[in-house]
Each structure stands twice: as C-alpha cells, then as structure tokens.
Amino acid sequence: MKEELFVSGRDIPNIDPFLNIWHWQIPMYLFLGGLAAGILFFASLFTIMGKEKEMPTTVKRATLLVPIALSLGLFFLFLDLKHKLWFWQLYTTIRLESPMSWGAWTLMVITPLSMVWSASYLKELWPAWDWKFKILDDFEKLVIKNRKGLAWAMIILAVILGIYTGILLSAFNARPLWNTSLLGPLFLVSGMSTGAATIMWMAKDKSERLLMSKIDLLLISIELFFIVHLFMGFLASNAVQIEAANLFLGGAFTVSFWGFVVVLGLIVPALLEILELRGYHIPVAIPAGLILFGGMMFRFIMVEAGQITRYLY
C-alpha cells in the first residue's frame, strides 16, 4: 500500500488533482493540422507525378480547404495561449530542441504556401475570377510556372506538419502515454487518412474516389498495425507506461477508444470501403464521415488521457 497526501494543501487550477492544462483547442488543432497535411501531401504527390488532370479534386478543389483548416487551427492554438499578447515571441527565435518551435515555423511557411497554391487554381475553378491588379496576375503566372517546385516544398512541409502533430506530444517524457516514438508516425498516418477521406468525400469522379478509397484502406491498415504495436510497446515497458495502457485496457478510456476510434473510426469505414470496391453502392459520406469522426476522437482521447498519466514516486 502506498498513499500520498498533500499535507500542505494543493489545489492549483488545471494542475490538481490531475493535469488538465490543454483543453479542446489542442486536439482540434491536431485534427485540423493532420487533415491539412494529408490533403496537401496527396495534392503535391499527384502534382509531382503529373496527374493533375486525373485527380482534379485532390489537386485543385480539396486544397481550397487547407488554408481554412490551417487558419482555424492556428486560431485555436492562439486561443489556447494563456499569455496571448506575447504570441509573437514564437517568431523571435528558432529553437531546434523544441517541437513547438518547429511546428510554429512550419505553420508560418506552409499556411501562406497553401494559400498561394489555392489562389493559383481559382481562375481554373471559376473562369470569371478576376485578380483586378496586374501584379497579382503576374504573381499567378509565376506560381503556375513553378507549380512542381511548390509541390516539392509542400510535400516535405506536409510530412513535417503531419508528423509534428504526434511529436508535439511524444516529446513529453513526463506523460508516459505520449512518450513513444510511434506517436509521430501514427499521427501522420491518421492525418493522411483523414485527408484522403475528405478528398474521397469531395471527389466527383468515380475513378478518383475509388483510388483515394484504396489509398485510405492502406492507411487504415497501417494505422491499426501501429495501434497494436503501440499497446504492445506499452505493455512491455515500465510501470508508468503499463499504467497508461491500462487506461485503454479496462480503464476510463476503454469504451471511447476501442468503440469510437478503432471500431467506428477505422474498422467500420474500412469494411464499407471494401464493400464499395466490391461493387456495392455505399454513400461515400458514411465511411468518410466516420474516418473524420474517428480521427478527431483519437486526438481528443490521446490529449486528455495523456495528461492524466504521470510518473509515480
């Protein structure tokens, strides 16, 4: 038996009885950041492969969502800051050891790039679009001429952005649930899967939808594989990580994680996509919506559960 008491009294807001310093803003941002990274990854990939014509939704229409998702995500991050007026201090320094510094700078570059990317397709999507100023017309021409180069920059930044959403958490050794190097790849794959689901949902062309559906199936399988490995790793690790895993294996997050994230968010949409590929007609909104829901739940659960886990001494 071991019992610990604060004999001096301690009830600090958001710290006691368990840490709860990050609220809904962080998982929402992680979701939007992963989604944006996923869409940008596929848009850049198909541009580099020269398949803009075959994949019009991926390259041109879905990317319109990215600046919105990133701006909204940045706004949520801003809401999370408790010393808001000093936010610009992020951009006075580059701190290589701090994942958050990496993330802040990546967002600083990728958000305007995604805006430029979307803007360069506005004329194609709405032929009546008029930039009104000559300098904007010239800039558009320059961007269109250098789309491949832009795609290369964006695909690298998209991977950094997607993996960063996981590394942000995994770099905290004090929170055993997060402290696994699998979290970066897991969040990247999950973000790419939500991106693929969004493109699938928006695609008008059947062949594009089916291709994204196949890619998504592959991503879901990788994700399930990572989740199994995550728990294998935890259970083979030290006391604090075993305790962290137990939150999901009989503990408070068991139903929400396995029910909402794994079954509803991964397995059910995967089965529906398999049925679709076999020729059954499944409304695309169901698997796509479930994947987005599962991705969001995953981030909410990981952020909340991770803050509860801690070192014991």
Binding site: I15, D16, L19, I21, W22, D80, L81, K82, H83, K84, W86, F87, Q89, L90, S98, M100, A171, F172, N173, A174, R175, Q307, R310, Y311
Partner: peptide, 15 residues
C-alpha cells in the same frame, strides 16, 4: 517571453 502555451507544464514530471 512566455506565451503561456503550456508545453513546459506538460513536460515536467514533478508538476
């Protein structure tokens, strides 16, 4: 210089 992001609070094993 602190922006109140909470990263250090998450990182401290001693709360």
């Amino acid at each position: 210089k602190c922006i109140g992001c909470g990263a250090c609070i998450q990182s401290c094993p001693y709360d």
